[in-house]
Design a protein around this nucleic acid. Structure first.
Lengths: 352, 352
DNA sequence: GCCCGTTCTCGAATCGATTCGAGGGCAATG
DNA sequence: CATTGCCCTCGAATCGATTCGAGAACGGGC
């Protein structure tokens, strides 16, 4: 009956009494093939249970796989827990919609041991680098060598790579100005990680100097424009837990306690607020907290004062840039603007 | 200088003065190649800027792509909005961790027009069918023909396909019993969609009869074990909006108003509660609402009474089943148990 | 009746890497 | 010095489909 466990186009062609080339034409539909032949081929395919051309062979021949990679800066599962990432993925999907391409989730961890599909060996036509990964430089180098068109969301990826970003520095500056105008002078910062090792702890000049994470650096720079000597702590990730830990450290000593904390993400801000609650510090009466992102944090009772960034639009712009790149164009970089949302986690400092 | 725009293994071999086969051996590292040769090859590769073997060619030759597909029942972006899906993805990632495979997001919509990568033409080694898709039957048929090992989460996929599920019927029965024990007799249901068209509206026997969504049917059956004649409405998706709409329809008429509503998902339950609020109906005093899933619904003030299912564990089990399948084993189906969490959205019906 | 043009089909090359079996060179041993 | 054996390298086949140019068949025009 069946020629082989898994019929190939050649089997189909043989059974239909035509050549492989004709069978291929009949399947793709484009070539000049008579209706009679086309029907013969399809009948043979049906009889053999042929499931259509092997995508692996197709992609080798055509040089395209129909897959767009999304490089996340952390383990995939961590990204799923970050609402900003999800919103961006959502936007990317929308943006590449016209390609009909699949989305392959990849990580940046460089631990592609064994048969792992890492950034250096994924059958993708293009990639979107998502997030402010400290490892961005290395990823970009690999992609450049492989000749894979890329788009970066946040983080400067170098020449020829369109960059989709937001006004991290300006936005943070506006937020800091708002705090200053409320009367705050004793302000501290909780930043995103600066380096690939995600070193956690106090902000040091070594860390700042060796920063490979543009987002963290830019946001810090924005705060410094208003509070030149501001210091604080570096979190190991954007999460409530990390924010909690940093918040505890910053708020532990009543004598050196700040009146306001600028967190570089809403999740960190939520953690800081949790730390304040633990210590019996009232928000916003005794401590103002400023976030960044504009997501709704699950379980947070407050309406967080934060810098709302257009995450979905960022993703969509990235997706559209990918489409444009694959069409041979050279899309331009885009920079979106964030908006300060004043909630109920900021107030003038308590006098005296 | 460079042989071609993108050097191939053959170019590297030529420059190193060895044959392509030797170069290949040198790269994969496994074969018996002298250190001297290995170094020559690597030097040549570095000189040419060779980025490593082309994954497309590799996957054709090896017959494996290192990619696991995740088939979602709806648009990818919709899945990202559903916390249950995210938790399952999370679990899947964890489960296939040992493979080091990438996760390719696919949808089930069957609109693979043009060059789109659909379920019928994705270079995947295995797939996980996620969710209770009405189109499951068709997807399974395609996968069977292509010879791609599959695992189904929720929904019977037929022989040879391990099924990861929960006790939908039993769990709902327990929830319904709880409502009955509270004293409720006038109960209605808001179900997940029954068919591929996602028909919305009152529950009709045609819809029930033609159901292709096992989850919806099973959960309804569980409710019927306690309230044999229960009716209600079919939602078009698992979302707050759909729950809101169904809730409005069920609660509009004060004379026929139920004292309790069994929603087949937490999001639907949240929508129902919103509808009740709109109509000035107090929850749980005037209306008890039971959910399903055990997620935390963003923005919902209540502690929802719901059936908590182990979403992450389900995903992990599916991932492990994939690993097992690819290793040539035949993993068994797994059925997890849900737990009734009593929150503050259920109470005895108001007497009189 | 002959020539030309159109339309359909086929053969062969190609995409880039992997892999098996064969063969060559070198060292050790009789 | 010849032979056995081992380690390394190479050639060639293969994975499955696509695509280009050539050839064949057929019909129409003169």
């Amino acid at each position: 009956m069946s020629e082989s466990p898994r019929p190939t186009l050649a089997d189909v062609a043989a059974r239909a009494g035509v050549s492989a080339s004709t069978a291929s034409l009949a399947f793709s539909g484009s070539g000049p093939v008579s209706d009679a032949t086309k029907q013969k081929v399809h009948a043979a395919a049906a009889a053999l249970g042929y499931a259509g051309p092997d995508p692996r062979a197709q992609s080798l021949r055509r040089g395209r796989s129909g897959i767009v990679g999304v490089v996340l800066e952390e383990r995939v599962r961590a990204a799923f827990l970050d609402p900003v990432k999800i919103q961006m993925l959502d936007g990317i999907t929308e943006g590449i919609g016209s390609l009909g391409a699949g989305l392959l989730l990849l990580t940046d961890t460089g631990e592609a041991g064994g048969n792992a599909v890492g950034i250096e060996s994924a059958p993708v036509d293009a990639v979107v680098l998502v997030g402010c990964s400290p490892r961005l430089g290395q990823s970009v180098e690999v992609l450049r060598r492989r000749g894979i068109p890329s788009v970066a969301i946040e983080g400067d990826a170098g020449d020829g790579i369109p960059k989709i970003s937001i006004d991290n520095r300006e936005a943070t500056r506006r937020g800091a100005e708002y705090l200053r105008d409320l009367g705050h002078t004793r302000v501290e910062v909780v930043t995103l990680p600066f380096d690939a090792a995600r070193t956690r702890g106090p902000i040091t000049s070594e860390l700042e100097h060796g920063s490979t994470a543009e987002t963290a650096s830019e946001r810090l720079a924005g705060a410094r424009e208003v509070f030149p000597d501001v210091t604080g702590r570096v979190a190991g990730a954007s999460s409530i837990e990390e924010g909690l830990e940093a918040g505890r450290a910053l708020l532990a000593d009543p004598s050196s306690r700040p009146t306001a904390i600028i967190a570089q993400s809403d999740l960190l801000a939520a953690g800081v607020i949790q730390a304040a609650e633990e210590l019996g510090i009232a928000v916003p009466a005794e401590l103002s907290v400023l976030g960044f992102d504009g997501i709704r944090v699950d379980g947070l009772q407050h309406d967080l004062t934060t810098l709302v960034q257009p995450s979905v639009a960022k993703g969509r712009a990235a997706g559209e840039a990918v489409v444009s790149l694959l069409a041979g164009d050279t899309p331009r970089s885009v920079c979106f603007t964030s908006v300060l949302h004043v909630g109920d986690t900021t107030a003038p400092p308590r006098t005296g």
